[in-house]
Nucleic acid binder design. Structure first.
Lengths: 130, 130
DNA sequence: TCTGCAAGTATACAAAAGTATACTGATATA
DNA sequence: TATATCAGTATACTTTTGTATACTTGCAGA
């Protein structure tokens, strides 16, 4: 068997996603990446805001209810470090700083759709039997 | 406009998932449900184990490296409360207790696939440019 | 009777995540 | 000159999460 990447193997359907949930390190790492990007009290509101449109720090503070400067700053740094958010410095006077999602960040939209779908289905099932 | 459920509206494509990420309470709650079920250090290992097969407490302890009784117990209770895990008491002597995923729990498989997919794509993009 | 498993509980502690509040330094506007 | 905005930092504190370790009750087998 040729030595190809996991991603290629998946594309080629040599590996079927459903059958390997309990498996290799790379997969665990990938899932963890995704969950780290999504968890904590403020990640979702921040990503949600930026999915709507790119914004400046102060605008985000107004948009996201109850968030403090400290948390917004902290979370934005983390998201930037994880390659989900881009901090763009525009060379006006005074400088304008804009936060926007990277391509990866944008593609979280699909993940969130799936999560939302599950959540709605789950609530239906759960509350109908309870 | 008739008064129909949100889920129906989505099915009927009167609402498009992409356009309402920053919107109604029900949606925020649903996404939160899903994330609560997935976050914390041990939720994923536990769900992963149970996706593989139903298990008893002691078997889970052996299967999941480093988890303590306290954490396993705590997390299982929470997952049960959230309708993701079922605790089945089998009336043998002595009684046998088995943990298994509910239908909702099983359907997390699809969500995890999507998350995994994003994680792999993200790692690719991220490490190729760094 | 002694040992050990099963399915946890109890207590104490450490570390991570989040909150509250005040402050900066540079620029812009009244 | 006084005030306000922007893009954050700094410090101290509380809450939530997770760890370590020991213990419990009921039964089974040697």
């Amino acid at each position: 068997m040729k030595d190809i990447s996991i991603e290629q193997a998946i594309k080629d359907e040599q590996i079927n996603l459903k059958d390997i949930k309990s498996c290799p390190v790379q997969f665990v790492l990938a899932v963890n990446d995704a969950l780290n990007v999504l968890t904590g009290k403020w990640k979702l509101p921040i990503i949600g805001a930026l999915l709507f449109k790119s914004m400046r720090f102060s605008e985000m503070k107004k948009t996201i209810p109850k968030i403090t400067s400290r948390m917004l700053s902290k979370e934005l740094k983390e998201l930037e470090l994880n390659g989900v958010v881009k901090r763009v410095v525009d060379d006006t006077t005074p400088v304008t700083i804009t936060y926007q999602l990277t391509d990866s960040g944008m593609s979280l939209n699909g993940v969130l759709d799936k999560i939302l779908e599950w959540g709605l289905g789950h609530r239906n099932e759960f509350f109908s039997q309870a």
